[in-house]
Design a protein around this nucleic acid. Structure first.
Lengths: 214, 214
DNA sequence: TAGATTGTTAATCGATTAACAATC
DNA sequence: TAGATTGTTAATCGATTAACAATC
């Protein structure tokens, strides 16, 4: 592989899955793994794993496979997970609370440093150890913690204006749970969590399975 | 387009986004839309929208565009959203509660008909109007409501065994929020909601943006 | 009619897979 | 050494885009 090839985004999206699977292997006390074995665990072909990794270097040994801990460390370094990323979360409804309380967010290289809502009844209350702050404090918190990553968990009607605020404050990447496509500058990263859309793509197949539709 | 071409899964995954955007247009009182305009709203090219739709028929008028309501109806029919799909939700922690309470799940062609947990302290309690049931009731509820779609919101350690139970009970499609890849028969549909993996794919770009990593 | 926009074809682009020499 | 598995190349497969005749 020519190391100068930039890795495609599909590859970047798979790396976190490789990392997670390697963490599980480590927990199980497994120290060595082949691309074949790793692939079986995450339903990906061995060739794809090897090709993906080749964008970043050579991490395995012929005839042996990969050292689990070493490969995990490499991938975490590639993903920038050697330190924790400060994150702000906007929208503290049921979903926002679930996110704020989920350990997977607060371990795993992420650290919520601010919770924001525009409901006066919520301001001043706390979720776990995090106080809920007014939007007026957003800029301040983003600057203080040098936050570049934000999560939006407000209703769709409100999401675009929240995104605008976040970007204005200096945020560079947004994970959006609201069911609406955000309009943002090209240099801001936006990704979506859209369970309803995913469910609706499965009903397509279910409807056909049962012969409800041709 | 040869109507016998089966639509690729990427196309099926985009249809719910088209449908949602059309619903918003309808709310705004907009009755006609071109592929260009629709594409701008959801950051997709006009050519892609037209190509995607061509797998299912001809829904537009040259020189005019698409009738919003008619196209929406077509897509909803294609997705099987002309009736509500009964869904069971397993795992009623903070996340499960947020899902159970979210209107987007309970409107939009989906209807939660059963909430399940294995925590004795939760059994018998309710989330909104839904009582939380013991796993022992799962098979019964799935059969009674002819449930084919399930949501898993239990911890990763527990997700595979829950998936096995669901499939055994007759579920045909699973939306899994647990951070683990499920091993399931080929004829069961499984999709994942994995916000931490998504965030980790964004830290890759953020780390490079700031020159922390080459 | 003139202008706009569709549906479709063909060209392009990109991602996955198969295969195998290198080598542990 | 023999067997296993990597990293990489080339072939295949699939998705996106550009372009345009058809037509409203």
């Amino acid at each position: 592989m020519d190391r100068l090839d930039i890795p495609p985004d599909v590859v970047i999206r798979r790396l976190p899955l490789y990392a997670r699977s390697l963490r599980y292997l480590l927990d199980e006390g497994i120290h060595s793994v082949s691309s074949q074995e790793l692939g079986e665990r995450i339903n990906v072909t061995a060739a794809q794993i090897r090709k993906d990794l080749s964008y970043f270097g050579e991490f395995g040994k012929q005839g042996i496979g990969y050292d689990v801990e070493k490969l995990l460390n490499h991938i975490e370094r590639i993903l920038g997970l050697t330190h924790r990323w400060p994150v702000v979360l906007v929208g503290v409804g049921y979903l926002g609370q679930a996110i704020a309380r989920y350990d997977g967010f607060n371990n795993q290289g992420l650290q919520i440093v601010g919770l924001f809502d525009n409901d006066p009844a919520k301001i001043g209350q706390a979720v776990g150890s995090h106080p809920i702050l007014d939007y007026s404090r957003l800029q301040e918190v983003v600057r203080e913690h040098q936050v570049r990553l934000a999560i939006i968990a407000v209703p769709a009607t409100h999401a675009q204006s929240v995104a605008d605020m976040l970007i204005e404050a200096g945020v560079r990447a947004i994970l959006n749970y609201a069911p609406i496509i955000l309009q943002t500058p090209d240099d801001v990263w936006v990704r979506y969590i859209d369970p309803v859309a995913v469910l609706h793509s499965m009903t397509y197949y279910l409807a056909r399975e049962s012969g409800e539709i041709s």
